Simulated scan of single mutants.
Amino acid sequence: MNVSAIVYTSATGFTAQYATLLHHQTGLPVFRLEDTDQLPRNTPVLYLGWLRAGRITGLKKARAQLAVAGVCAVGMAPAVELEKLRRDNRLEAVPLFYLKGGYAPARVRGMNKLMMAAMEKVLAGKSDPQSRAALDAVRHGADWVSQEQLDPVLDWLEPKE
């Protein structure tokens, strides 16, 4: 795929970690979404954004300024339904990848902190293993960032001939 840069939005650092890993693997320059004024309008980019209530943060702004050629959504869930995520974020023909990131309670602020407090209460009332694991992550934090999760993204960026 012909991508000129990696652009990302990160609230607690996990999406930034993935952007950095991709930079090291590909040599592509990395920009925070706030710093894309350095890029010409409609530059083809791979966009990475974290998930909040099923929405990829910053995607709308990225699409308004740049040619988003592919998207990585970073979240806490073990897996997501990609087609639903695609529909909810209007990514009809854009390649979409899901990367399990992490959660750092000490780095969460404002409305996001309130949303996670509500999520903690919901999870505390559940007893299934997945909910218990999510509750532990919400209370104590977790880091699931791994190079291996980037393999499909790297295959898309650098297709083998």
Rank of each mutant, 00 (worst) to 15 (best):
A53Y: 06
T12Y: 02
N42K: 12
A73G: 01
A16G: 13
T26V: 00
V74W: 00
D151A: 15
Y98L: 05
A11V: 12
H140T: 13
P105N: 08
P159H: 00
A64C: 09
L114Y: 05
D37T: 15
Y103K: 03
G27Y: 00
A53P: 00
A124D: 15
G54C: 02
K61G: 06
E161G: 15
V74C: 02
A124Y: 04
P44R: 03
L59M: 03
V74H: 02
V145P: 02
T9W: 03
T36L: 10
A77L: 07
V7D: 02
W50T: 02
G125L: 04
P44C: 06
K100W: 05
K61W: 03
L59E: 03
A69E: 10
S10A: 05
R139D: 06
T57K: 14
V108K: 05
L33T: 07
A11D: 10
P129A: 08
C72A: 08
G102T: 08
V71T: 08
V71Q: 02
A104N: 14
W50I: 00
A134T: 14
Y8N: 00
A124F: 01
V122I: 14
S4C: 11
M116D: 10
M111Y: 07
A16I: 05
L96Q: 07
M1H: 10
D35E: 14
G54D: 05
V30K: 02
T12S: 13
S146H: 10
A53S: 10
A67L: 10
L66F: 04
G110F: 09
L82T: 04
G49P: 00
A104M: 10
A62H: 02
P129N: 09
W144I: 08
R139T: 06
W144N: 15
D35F: 08
R55C: 03
A104L: 10
E120G: 11
L48K: 01
L28A: 03
G102E: 01
E92D: 13
P159D: 01
A11N: 11
M115V: 14
L33Q: 03
W144V: 04
A134K: 06
V153I: 01
T12A: 15
Y103F: 13
A79I: 04
R41C: 14
G125S: 11
G27S: 00
A77S: 09
Q130I: 12
V71K: 01
D37W: 07
D155M: 07
L48E: 01
K113G: 11
K160P: 07
L21Q: 04
T36M: 09
H24E: 14
L135G: 12
R63W: 06
M116G: 05
E92P: 07
M76N: 13
H140M: 05
A106I: 10
R132Q: 15
M115E: 09
A93N: 14
H140A: 09
G58D: 05
Q65Y: 07
S131T: 07
P78D: 11
L96S: 06
A79N: 13
L85R: 02
R132D: 14
K84F: 07
M119T: 14
Q17P: 05
D128F: 01
K61V: 13
R63H: 09
G141Q: 09
P159G: 00
R55M: 12
D35V: 11
E83D: 15
G102F: 03
